[in-house]
């Protein structure tokens, strides 16, 4: 598949944002899950997205992938406004994602799960299944896999079309430590090959190890944004997690 390299070129305005959210707001009833949020993410990096429960992390993913509509604000990807696009068109633009609560196709076999993505590649499917250690289960219904294996299947499925930009919602929850290392290595390799990630994760070891830049959300607002060392010592972040 021909990969366009235009995102490697300097942006006309001289800044290198790939995904940009501008004054984004989404409320559920009276709760503002995302509150006037402006943040952008640069190409070929692993971004961490952290924050206490209910901070709006998953809502940010849902808005970006088009499964939720914002009340206000704009989302653009490589300069293309995608705020009102259908989820499938956003996916075809090269934004892939996984879900916090696993969303595999339970009655389909493992291999059939890999065949659903638009533009899927059979040989790459098998390769990825091999990588996450699910190749021998390829003909088993996906619902018969363990929780961790289902998580891995979802990870593999999100990568089978080689999206340029991947949103991972707690990819390592419930996965055994050895495999977590392997997945982290894979994410690093893919980043070196030019892919971009945003990872939501509660395991701080994973986040601090993996990410070059961390964005911290609290009550739908960005309270900190910077390299891991900076986030670790940020007083606002500590307050958000442990209360004042």
């Amino acid at each position: 598949m021909a990969e366009t390299l235009d995102f490697l070129l300097p942006h006309p305005e001289g800044d290198t944002q790939m995904l940009a959210l501008k004054q984004l707001t989404k409320a559920f009833g009276g709760v503002r899950a995302i509150d006037n949020l402006t943040v952008s993410f640069e190409p070929h990096r692993v971004h961490g997205l952290i924050g206490p429960n209910g901070a709006g992390k998953t809502t940010l993913f849902n808005l970006t992938s088009g499964t939720l509509r914002p009340d206000n604000g704009e989302i653009s990807f490589n300069g293309v406004p995608i705020t009102w696009w259908n989820p499938w068109n956003i996916a075809r633009l090269g934004i892939g994602r996984t879900f916090q609560t696993i969303r595999i196709f339970p009655k389909m076999t493992v291999l059939q799960n890999m065949m659903v993505p638009y533009g899927t590649d059979p040989s790459r499917s098998v390769e990825l299944l091999e990588f996450v250690g699910l190749r021998e289960f390829r003909d088993a219904p996906a619902r018969e896999l363990s929780y961790g294996q289902q998580k891995l299947l979802e990870f593999a499925r999100a990568l089978v079309t080689s999206p340029r930009f991947v949103l991972l919602d707690e990819p390592t929850a419930g996965v055994n430590p050895i495999l977590v290392e392997k997945i982290m290595g894979h994410i690093r390799n893919l980043t070196r090959d030019g892919k971009t990630f945003i990872v939501i994760e509660h395991d701080m070891k994973v986040i601090m190890n993996l990410c070059e830049r961390i964005v911290v959300l609290h009550n739908g607002e960005k309270i900190a944004d910077g390299p891991p060392e900076m986030i670790k010592t940020n007083q606002q972040v500590i307050d958000a997690y442990f209360g004042d």
Binding site: A91, F105, V116, A158
Partner: peptide, 22 residues
Amino acid sequence: GITLVSIREDEVASQVLGVNTF
């Protein structure tokens, strides 16, 4: 056929995988 079944199993997941479910 696979697409139709994916709609039954989880329509939202199918959509974010680039399937024009409509």
